[in-house]
Amino acid sequence: MTRDTQGENAPSDLDLTRLLQTLTVESDRYAERFGSRHGLHRTDVNALALILAAARRGEPMSPSALARELGLSPSATTALIDRLEAVGHVERERPSGDRRRVALHVPEAGLEEGRKMFVPLAEAFADSWAGFGPAEREVVARFLDVSTEAMKAVSAEWAPPHESQRRR
């Protein structure tokens, strides 16, 4: 690892970037293994993650919102949802009061499959973080938050042309 050019005994920006790249690659590999185990495409796994994240925030995920998040056409999104529904990972619901709207959610059986794959990872993470005190955890959380926002900002610059046209 290289050190900061100002003589401090800390990893450089390049070191941190490479560590994040390594974490991202390993995270991708883990998600691909989950998808492979369940016969899912990588985009299907990403869709599940987005639907679950929306549920954690208490926000229903609609097919059109999912299409925007994934940068997919409506027909490709319908095919993706059909695949996920066929294997029991997603269900379409119509919220009461508006039969035109559709909300996507992951049923208990799908959640249980996800737990089998991701609870061991969460436990391994918790074990590896056991030596971090509260102040260090605050720094790590802030680092991850700002790094994620930086990734989103730069990623938006690389959006496919059809995605930016659709947002207008």
Rank of each mutant, 00 (worst) to 15 (best):
A10K: 06
D15P: 07
R18L: 15
Q21R: 12
Q21L: 15
L23N: 10
V25H: 06
E26G: 09
S27L: 15
S27D: 15
Y30K: 13
Y30A: 10
E32R: 14
R33C: 11
G35D: 09
G39S: 10
G39E: 07
H41P: 09
H41Q: 15
R42P: 04
D44R: 09
V45T: 10
N46F: 12
A47G: 01
L48H: 09
A49I: 05
A49T: 06
L50G: 01
L50R: 09
A53F: 05
A54M: 13
A54I: 12
A54K: 07
A55T: 13
R56S: 13
P60L: 04
M61Q: 08
P63W: 00
P63S: 02
A65D: 04
A67E: 02
A67P: 02
A67W: 01
R68I: 00
E69F: 01
L70V: 07
T77I: 05
A79H: 03
D82A: 01
D82T: 01
A86D: 15
A86I: 03
A86R: 12
V87Y: 04
G88R: 02
V90L: 01
R94T: 15
P95I: 08
P95S: 09
G97N: 11
R99H: 07
R100Y: 08
A103M: 03
L104C: 08
L104T: 03
A109R: 10
A109D: 13
E113K: 10
R115Q: 14
R115G: 11
